[in-house]
Structure formats: structure tokens, C-alpha cells
Design a protein around this nucleic acid. Structure first.
Length: 598
RNA sequence: GAUUCCGUAGCUCAGCUGGUAGAGCAAUACACUUUUAAUGUAUGGGUCCUGGGUUCGAGCCCCAGCGGGAUCACCA
């Protein structure tokens, strides 16, 4: 095997962006089936039919609408026009059955030769329909609704049109009478990389995403009804604030300065509260330059809302009412089933302070413990610690290890240690705690909320604490945002803020264990492929069409590879190859070969 | 980042101790007027992930790499 056929990343441009020409003609080896479909495409064109016609298509009914609304007893014929993707064909001589999928579901089509072709010319059925229409093609049909002998509501086709030819065969899973599925399209890599195929083949995947949108719609409606304003804030930020995480860095050319993709939008939303809005919220795409796994994607969505003149106690009620409504909207009842657990999302949810949670699950009362005592407690509980951990971190460790996973039913955990929460107001009863809650469902954090810190002096001190952590080597500690401090100095009303991880919430509601299942296009490593040329690439540089495939057969896998050699060597090699294999193509002249090298 | 498993036809997968690359579905051709995993007969289809090594001989053994899954660590 030649050195230049080795794998290399698809992306090769200087800026590192994906730039591969995915046009199969030039870059990919075509399977037999793909080649056949291309041939079919040509035959269709030769027959004078445009396989990709431009006209808008008349659609009067949907698949689901027809099956739901068909009245068997009616004498009157229901005429329909539907469009969609052909998902299967069963040919039986002069009659055929086919399956059409539209955005609402599937409907069976019945084709009869003598009705498609009333005259003597049976081309449209025998050749066009039977041989040139493939699974995967988009077609539209006109006809009337009827019920087959087997009892399936179907469309008796009187007329059909090809709308968009498919030249790559789709996977073909099948389900038998017992509901057993064969050849399922299940490989996660392929499903995520080619989500369009996943959506076509695995219908239930579509439902997950419809639910996702429903979750967001319902939340938006809930906030709007309460009178709060949906806003947009910068994604490109000079200071990536509002959370502790490593940001993605980019560069603005005109300003010649670094910019960061936001890790959170919190500080901007609070500026808007300073500006006098009563309540603002944003469904924000955030970016964090950290590990990827089944619960983390580099970009993800958090809904954040800030409401003036409220505290975290009010926010708990607001949150549980909202979630009850969201889950009811999606699942028709305030319930989520996860494995063997049924989770009731009906408000109100249990409230438990962090101290009480630890007492409940470990028997240890951490009230009044200093750092050394907490470290001992960790040791007794078999929790590993390291010297850099402060009081807050130690408490958080105990909670994370011993409590969080046990909290299946929705539970508000309140009153977090102050070290963990640099943007949160000190607790009204205990200066070591903050007015913060997290909502834990099914052992996982779903929401995080504060009574927001609006004391500018306190906020500045908290930022400085973070700066110290940063100098100690914590690369996730927060930056100081001086403009945000200036905003607070002008005065911010008491405010409560809530953040909900939308991806995680959708995972919970749809019962998916991985974030990749609730993102249309989860981040993946770049696809790698051997760079192989097709005949078209060689034709493009002037190689005669008759020669193109032989050039490849002679060992030139791509144009670059051929141009590396001297024209004389290529000339001799190819003519030698022609002679050896007795090819029926004209011999090459040296000046011809030289012309390819330009 | 660590551990571990996996990568074979368009899809799902088998492949023995290292000895000519297999099945079902899909495709192609023919038959068939109410099927529904349609059926019957026939045919074609392979970069065994990539590169290197051992060997007379590698899908299989060894090394390295790439990609993916699972578990763990960090994080939301």
C-alpha cells in the first residue's frame, strides 16, 4: 500500500476547519448500490423526468390524519394528496404496496399497474415505478383512501411524482410479528454523526427532540405568563464570568483582543436587573472547554432566570410549579419513569438543608465542625480528600458521595457553604452558609438557584477570594469582572436567580442516560477517512474520461499523488500499464500528461 | 486522562488451532392483482479500521496508531 493512502484527518485547511468535499463523486469509493442508483438517476433524466423538480407540491393530508380520520362506512371516496419519503416497496406483479413516511407517521400506498398506466404503455409502472423508484426517494401521490383486505388503511394511488431521488441506500431494519427488530440502526457513532439517518430510521429519536422543544416551549410560556422578559446576551465575552469552568478562547481581529465563548450568562442578566427589568430570562447556549462524556458536551443549554424582589424561598415554589407543568405538558401527567423508579414531579418538593441531608444519610452532624474535624469525618466515611480542599469543598464531597445519589424524588437541598458560591448572598441566619438551593432529582442536580448577592463590597471580596484560588493554581476560579462590580455599585434590587440545565432536564424527562441522545448534533471527533480520489478528480485536471479509472487502477490514488511524479515517469508508467493490461484506450502523449501537471 | 471491550458486504452479525471471505436482510434479474419481516428462483457485491512485524501463509498472533462503546476521574 502506498504511503499517501494513509489515513489523515478530513479537515486539512490552514485554519483547521472542516473543509472536505463530501461530494461522493470526487472523494468516496462508491458501493455497488450507490453506483446503481446513480445509473438510475441518469435513466430518469434520459426519460425526460427531472429527479429533483423545483415546483411546490400539493399536500392535502398527512399520514396520521388519514389513519385517524378514515371512515370505513362512508360511501364517498376521500381524495388525498400526500408527500413523503418512500420507506419500502412490496411488488407483486401488477400490484404493489409501498410505505410512505411523512412528518406525522407512515401510510401504506397501493399501486395498480392498469390504474397508473390506463393505456397500452405500461412504462410508468413497469419501469419507472418498479425499477427507478427506490426506498429513500421522496415522492408525492394523489389517490383515494381505502382499506385493504388485511384491514390496513391505505391510499389507492392514481398518480405519483418523484420529488427527490435518493442515491445512497438507507439502513433497512425490519420488525417481525413478535415485535422483534432485525438489522437495527443502533451504532451510536453512526447515529450521532449521521443524525439525519437516525431520525429517518429510528422514529422514536424524533420524539425525544419533539419533547425537548416542548419542554422549552412550556417553560417559555410559564415565564411569559409571569410577565418576565426573554432576552439575549453576549456569547462572545471579554471576561468569561458567572461560573467556574475553563472557557474556549478566540480572537477578534479588528479589536486585536482575545474573546471567550461564554461559560454562563449570569453576570449579564444581573446587569439587566440593575437596569430596571423586573424579570429576565434566557435559554443560553454555554461553552465549556472540558471533558466530554455521556453527561457532558462542550456546548450545552442552560435556562437562567432572574427575578427582582424575590428570594430563594420564593424561587423554590416557582421552580416546582414550573416543573410540574413542564412534565405534565410532555408526559400528560406530572410523572417521570426512570428504570424501576417512578418520580412524582407534583409540587411541592421536599426541602432539606445540606446539613440535615448529611445527617440523614451518614449520621454525622457537621454543625460547627472546623476544617480538621470535617477532614476526619471524611476519613471515617471513606471519602478521599486532598490538602487543597477547604471547608466548603469537604462538605460538598460528603454530600456528593453519600447523599446526592440517594435523592430520587425531587428534593431541594438548601444552604450551601459559602466557599462554594461566590455569587450568592450570605444566609440570613448563618454567615458561613449561603441562600442557595439545588434541586436534586433521580440522584442528579437539575437546578441551581440563589438569593443573589447584591452587596457590591461583599461581591468584590468574594471575587478577590476567587483570585487567590486562581493564584494557587485553580484554573477554574472566577475572573474579576469590574464592569459587573460597577453595575452592582449603582444598586441592584434583592433578586433571586435560577439556572436549569436544559439538556439534563430533557434527559430526565425522556429517560435518556446520555446527553448525546438529547442533542441533535453532539460534538464528535473529526471523521477520518482515507483520501481516495474518484475518476472525476482526474477528469477535472484534463485526464480523458476513458483513462480516468485506469489511472486509479495504475496506483494513483489521488491527483496530488500523481503530480508528485515527473511527467515522463507518469507517461511511461501509464502507457506500460495500458500495454500490460491490454486496455482498449488510446495511448497517451507526453504533452498530454504534462498538461495534467499544471 | 485511566481501565476495558469493539471495528469483517449498504445494514445486523458469524468466522474453528493461522490454510481459497460467510449468513440473513438490502441490491440486481425473472415470476406473481390486497401484501405487510410478502413469497419463490437465480445472480452480483469485500481497503476484513490504518500502518508495521512474526510466518511458507494473517480477518485471526504481536506492536503502534485512528475511531467508537462501557466503567472510573473532573465537570453541569
Amino acid at each position: 500500500m502506498r504511503e499517501d493512502t494513509t489515513l489523515r484527518p478530513v479537515q486539512t485547511s490552514a485554519n483547521g476547519y472542516l473543509c472536505k468535499n463530501f461530494n461522493g463523486m470526487s472523494a468516496e469509493h462508491l458501493s455497488e448500490q450507490e453506483q446503481l442508483r446513480r445509473n438510475t438517476l441518469n435513466q430518469i433524466r434520459e426519460a425526460g423526468i427531472d429527479p429533483y423538480p423545483p415546483e411546490a407540491v400539493e399536500v392535502t393530508h398527512t399520514a396520521a390524519g388519514i389513519t385517524a380520520g378514515f371512515d370505513d362506512s362512508s360511501e364517498e371516496r376521500l381524495s388525498v394528496a400526500v408527500a413523503g419519503r418512500l420507506m419500502g416497496k412490496r411488488i407483486m406483479g401488477k400490484a404493489s404496496f409501498a410505505e410512505l413516511h411523512d412528518h406525522t407517521g407512515r401510510i401504506q400506498l397501493y399501486f395498480n399497474r392498469d390504474e397508473i398506466c390506463p393505456g397500452d404503455d405500461k412504462w410508468k409502472y413497469n419501469d419507472f415505478f418498479k425499477k427507478m423508484i427506490d426506498r429513500g426517494d421522496f415522492i408525492s401521490v394523489k389517490g383515494f383512501v381505502f382499506k385493504t383486505q388485511v384491514g390496513e388503511i391505505s391510499i389507492h394511488v392514481e398518480e405519483f411524482t418523484l420529488l427527490g431521488k435518493s442515491i445512497k441506500p438507507l439502513p433497512f431494519p425490519k420488525t417481525d410479528e413478535e415485535g422483534k427488530t432485525y438489522d437495527a440502526f443502533t451504532d451510536p457513532e453512526q447515529r450521532y454523526r449521521q443524525r439525519y439517518v437516525d431520525l429517518v430510521i429510528n422514529r422514536e429519536v424524533r420524539d425525544t427532540f419533539v419533547k425537548r422543544t416542548k419542554v422549552i416551549d412550556t417553560m417559555r410560556r410559564f415565564f411569559n405568563e409571569a410577565g418576565y422578559l426573554e432576552v439575549e446576551t453576549p456569547i462572545l465575552q471579554p471576561i468569561p464570568g458567572g461560573a467556574t469552568a475553563r472557557p474556549f478562547e478566540t480572537h477578534h481581529n479588528a479589536l486585536n483582543m482575545p474573546l471567550y465563548l461564554r461559560i454562563a450568562n449570569e453576570l449579564y442578566l444581573k446587569r439587566l436587573i440593575v437596569g430596571g427589568f423586573d424579570g429576565v430570562y434566557e435559554f443560553a447556549r454555554n461553552f465549556r472547554n472540558e471533558g466530554m462524556d455521556r453527561t457532558h458536551n462542550p456546548e450545552f443549554t442552560i435556562m437562567e432566570i432572574y427575578v427582582a424582589y424575590k428570594d430563594y424561598k420564593w424561587m423554590m415554589e416557582f421552580t416546582e410549579n414550573m416543573l410540574e407543568r413542564v412534565v405534565t405538558a410532555v408526559n400528560d401527567k406530572p410523572e417521570v419513569r426512570i428504570g424501576d423508579n417512578t418520580i412524582s414531579m407534583k409540587a411541592p418538593y421536599r426541602r432539606l438543608t445540606m446539613t440535615d441531608a448529611i445527617k440523614e444519610y451518614t449520621g454525622v452532624d457537621i454543625t460547627g465542625m472546623d476544617e480538621a474535624a470535617l477532614r476526619n469525618a471524611c476519613k471515617d466515611l471513606g471519602i478521599e480528600t486532598d490538602p487543597s480542599m477547604g471547608k466548603g469543598k469537604l462538605i460538598d464531597e460528603i454530600f456528593g458521595e453519600k447523599c446526592e445519589g440517594n435523592l430520587i424524588q425531587p428534593t431541594f437541598i438548601t444552604d450551601y457553604p459559602i466557599e462554594m458560591s461566590p455569587l450568592c448572598k450570605k444566609h440570613r441566619d448563618n454567615p458561613e452558609l449561603t441562600e442557595r438551593f439545588e434541586l436534586i432529582i433521580n440522584g442528579k442536580e437539575i437546578a441551581n438557584a440563589y438569593t443573589e448577592l447584591n452587596d457590591p463590597i461583599d461581591q468584590r471580596e468574594r471575587f478577590e477570594e476567587q483570585l487567590k484560588l486562581s493564584q494557587k493554581g485553580d484554573d477554574e476560579a472566577m475572573f474579576i469582572d469590574h464592569d459587573f462590580l460597577r453595575a452592582l455599585e449603582y444598586g441592584m434590587p434583592p433578586t433571586s436567580g435560577l439556572g436549569i440545565g436544559i439538556d439534563r432536564l430533557v434527559m430526565l424527562i425522556t429517560g435518556n442516560a446520555s446527553i448525546q441522545e438529547v442533542l441533535f448534533f453532539p460534538q464528535m471527533r473529526p471523521e477520518k477517512k482515507a483520501v481516495m480520489a474518484g475518476p472525476a478528480d482526474f477528469v477535472a485536471i484534463g485526464v480523458p474520461e476513458a483513462w480516468a479509472e485506469h489511472v486509479i487502477a495504475a496506483g494513483f490514488n489521488n491527483v496530488e499523488n500523481l503530480r508528485k511524479e515527473k511527467p515522463t515517469a507518469v507517461h511511461q508508467k501509464l502507457n506500460g500499464f495500458r500495454k500490460k493490461n491490454k486496455l482498449d484506450v488510446p495511448t497517451l502523449q507526453l504533452d498530454e500528461v504534462e498538461a495534467w501537471m499544471a
